[in-house]
């Protein structure tokens, strides 16, 4: 930019024009070089799969013989016949409508408490953040053990208190709440984001609110919430996107809880969604069709649908947020 500023006032001579031309060309080459990883990456790992997904969703393809065009049949089966799609969508909605709000609420509550603490903020922050670091596979295995209905520490302790503990991961009513507990344990990232936002809120606002006689609840309503609303929006969006992709915990929990590693029996344990399909979330269904049955065509139809829904939901949340999110300054 400094170059252009210098050259702008100078008269145009042929030589100058050539020099400018060369400089612009060099600059373009530089940009192209810097951008090249993304250009290739976007085309190969984003554009190509997107187009391919749409194409494959109109075919029957099992990876053994070449794709066979079958028109709308996959979509017809998806929307009218597949008995698993309905429950899978409902299970995923459960995550979005119950697990995500609980996660956000809990993270917010903990962040508020840590922010209020006069001592040991660092210590508490570490304690609440640590579980978020635990690899999901390890954390899930630990929770299945902790919540073992017969011998798990949780039910043993409940038993000592005279409570007959639930079946947790073994019962269709309790499996999703059990996964929710697991996800609440891992709210560390959200908590830290909230904590930073709360500590960032201008202190004068609180003081003037206090002088005006606002109690803690009113201060929360009129000072804290408005100032951190962009952060809440951000958390909700990433949590919803994460909920739509919820896979690892569901897969591992069902696998371990169903437990029967059938070594010499005749069943390939079809334990996805155990118990009774209650943990069969949409991505798990996609995995089942794509990578267990290798119905690549049908799995592609499922992913196209997910793509459309995910995009719509994200756009809707961001659109509607204008109404209640308060942007203090330019965020981006």
């Amino acid at each position: 930019m400094t170059e252009t500023a210098v050259t702008a006032g100078a008269p145009f001579t042929a030589e100058r024009r050539r020099a400018r031309h060369r400089a612009a060309w060099r600059r373009r080459r530089l940009v192209l070089m810097l951008m090249s990883p993304w250009i290739v990456g976007f085309c190969v790992f984003f554009g190509y799969p997107l187009v391919m997904s749409v194409y494959l969703s109109f075919t029957h393809y099992d990876l053994l013989s070449s794709p066979k065009w079958i028109g709308w049949a996959n979509y017809k089966y998806l929307f009218t016949q597949d008995p698993q799609v309905g429950p899978a969508v409902r299970n995923t909605l459960w995550l979005i409508l119950i697990m995500v709000p609980l996660q956000v609420l809990f993270a917010f509550g903990v962040a508020t408490m840590v922010a209020r603490a006069k001592r040991g903020v660092g210590f508490f922050r570490t304690v609440f953040y640590l579980p978020a670091l635990a690899p999901p596979v390890a954390a899930t295995m630990a929770f299945v053990y902790l919540l073992n209905p017969a011998t798990g520490p949780v039910n043993v302790i409940l038993g000592h208190l005279g409570i007959n503990g639930p079946l947790w991961f073994q019962s269709p009513q309790w499996s999703k709440p059990s996964l929710t507990l697991l996800s609440i344990w891992g709210i560390g990232n959200l908590m830290i984001i909230f904590l930073a936002a709360i500590l960032d809120a201008p202190q004068q606002l609180y003081e003037s609110a206090e002088l005006d006689g606002a109690g803690p609840i009113q201060r929360m309503r009129w000072v804290t919430l408005p100032t951190i609303s962009p952060v809440i929006l951000f958390s909700v969006v990433i949590s919803v996107i994460a909920a739509m992709q919820y896979f690892t915990q569901a897969y591992v929990a069902a696998n371990i809880a169903s437990g029967q590693a059938s070594q010499a029996g005749d069943q390939t344990v079809n334990n996805l969604g155990y118990p009774e399909g209650s943990t069969l979330f949409y991505p798990v269904l996609l995995y089942q069709h794509g990578f267990r049955f290798f119905n690549m065509g049908y799995a592609s139809a499922l992913s196209v649908l997910l793509l459309i829904v995910a995009f719509t939901v994200t756009v809707l949340i961001i659109r509607n947020s204008r109404r209640w999110v308060h942007y203090a300054g330019a965020v981006k």
Partner: peptide
């Protein structure tokens, strides 16, 4: 425009592209 592609890629759930990518790697 280039930055918009980044934002779009950011919003897309990776689960969506696994099937064609698997086919490609296979």
């Amino acid at each position: 425009l280039a930055f918009a592609t980044v934002l779009i890629a950011l919003m897309l759930p990776p689960v969506v592209s696994v099937v064609p990518l698997y086919v490609m790697w296979a």
